[in-house]
């Protein structure tokens, strides 16, 4: 497995936007250095040839966990909406949405 190039400031800026985070110039600089250091350390993993090894996402090999299609109690709406930052007409209010859902 070839190791990707060293992490750049642009990479970090791109990733921050994807993650809905805004960074100051100073943060961008600092995070770029720190993340590059972590990824550099991860070269012991990223540089290995593991083409013959299957990935493990779940430590315990369990399949087909299902529940019956039976109605369970719902939450009390008032209790839920009491925690919401902004509510109108029993709905969660958000400011203007600039684009359609993907």
């Amino acid at each position: 497995m070839s190791t990707p190039e060293r992490l750049s400031r642009d990479d970090v800026a791109h990733v921050a936007a994807l993650a809905r985070l805004e960074l100051t110039e100073e943060e961008l600089e600092r995070y770029t250095g720190q993340l590059a250091q972590v990824l550099e350390h991860a070269k012991d993993v990223s540089s290995l040839d593991l083409s013959g090894v299957a990935p493990t996402a779940h430590a315990m090999a369990v399949v087909n966990v299902l529940r019956p299609d039976e109605v369970r109690p719902t939450l009390d709406r008032a209790e839920v909406l009491a925690e919401a930052p902004e509510v109108e007409s029993d709905r969660f209010r958000v400011p203007r949405i600039l684009g359609e859902a993907p």
Binding site: M1, S2, T3, P4, L7, D11, V12, H14, V15, L18, L35, L39, A42, V45, S46, L48, L50, V53, A54, P55, T56, A57, A59
Partner: peptide, 20 residues
């Protein structure tokens, strides 16, 4: 970053193999 397009295999999936 490790899940994003282009890096997923080199990092995330590779780490899952190491997990094995």
């Amino acid at each position: 970053y490790v899940l994003s397009a282009g890096y997923m295999d080199a990092y995330y999936n590779q780490a899952l193999r190491v997990r094995s």
